[in-house]
């Protein structure tokens, strides 16, 4: 399977990834993503019938804990790194979404 990307496809992926791209990036990524996926085609040639996927390497879980209230991050500490916090309201501020 040969992999070629049009800039329109790159735009569709960028929209999903919430990335604004420059024209130079759109062209560059169209080529580079194609090259990388072309190389990845060898994975598709391997017979995996009946092989379960590995999503996690965890073999033994720590025992479940009680669902008890424990100290958590102070609200002001949590807001301290926000580019636009509203500390009086105890909230993060974002551009208006609803008109």
């Amino acid at each position: 399977m040969s992999v070629r990307f049009s800039t329109a496809e790159v735009d569709a992926i960028a929209a999903l990834a919430r990335l604004e791209l420059t024209d130079a990036e759109r062209k560059l990524f169209a080529r580079q993503l194609g090259d990388i996926l072309e190389y990845a085609v060898q994975v598709q040639r391997i017979d995996t019938s009946g092989v379960p996927p590995t999503a996690s390497l965890v073999t033994s879980h720590a025992a479940d804990r009680h669902d008890a209230v424990a100290p958590s991050l102070d609200r002001m500490a949590a807001l301290a790194n926000a580019p636009d916090a509203a500390p009086d309201a105890g909230l993060f501020r974002v551009p208006r979404v609803i008109g």
Partner: peptide, 24 residues
């Protein structure tokens, strides 16, 4: 970008799922 593409509906089985099987 690459990660968003391989997780996309329609491509998930061919790339991400397949890669996880070969990981096994």
């Amino acid at each position: 970008m690459l990660g968003t593409y391989v997780l996309r509906a329609g491509y998930y089985d061919a790339y991400y799922l397949k890669a996880q099987q070969v990981r096994t």
